[in-house]
């Protein structure tokens, strides 16, 4: 067992454990904090795969910005177990079915993995910022631009929603 495997096992335990804790926690604030730990563990996995750029962007975007907003909303609404509405039987059934379907898809993907061909760890430069840049702006420039248009439209949508509120508030 070399050090990479040891780190991998540690990170995996951390990721799966915190994900379970996220679901099991009664308080939404604790759930959000556990989710942040999950993101850190996943970033650790990215670093093991020598994808430092992805690792740090994962932290900046997910742990640093999106989860702050999550925490912000949860704290502001002061959610806790008492105010949580009791979901009826049908809703629970729908949740079980959709969650189970996702589990099936993931399982079928995992079953197909060839264990002999594990990912190369700490080698290759596919995840480094230079090769990433060349790939994004040369080989995959069209999908990249299309996704940026998607982001732009989402941004405009957010601005319009914000403006609408402002207009009704003033008028």
């Amino acid at each position: 067992m070399n050090i990479t495997t040891l780190v991998f096992i540690l990170l995996s335990v951390m990721a799966v454990g915190s994900a379970l804790m996220m679901i099991a926690s009664k308080s939404p604030v604790h759930s959000v904090l556990w989710l942040i730990v999950v993101f850190f563990a996943i970033s650790g996995h990215y670093i093991l795969l020598n994808a430092q750029f992805l690792a740090i962007v994962n932290i900046i975007v997910y742990a640093g910005a999106i989860m702050v907003l999550f925490l912000f909303v949860v704290m502001l609404m002061n959610l806790n177990a008492d105010t949580e509405p009791i979901k009826n039987y049908r809703l629970q059934l729908i949740g079980v079915i959709s969650g189970g379907t996702l589990l099936l898809i993931i399982l079928s993907a995992v079953m197909k993995i060839d264990v002999e061909q594990m990912v190369e760890m700490k080698t290759g430069d596919a995840g480094l910022i230079k090769s990433l840049g060349f790939n994004l702006f040369k080989n995959y420039v069209l999908p990249f631009e299309i996704s940026s248009v998607l982001f732009l439209s989402a941004m405009i949508g957010a601005v319009i929603i914000g403006k609408k509120d402002e207009i009704t508030h003033e008028g």
Binding site: Q52, F53, I56, V57, A63
Partner: peptide, 14 residues
């Protein structure tokens, strides 16, 4: 690290 600036930025956001 070869992403030093991004690391700084990440820690600031945390």
């Amino acid at each position: 690290v070869n992403i030093g600036v991004l690391y700084v930025f990440g820690v600031v956001s945390l």
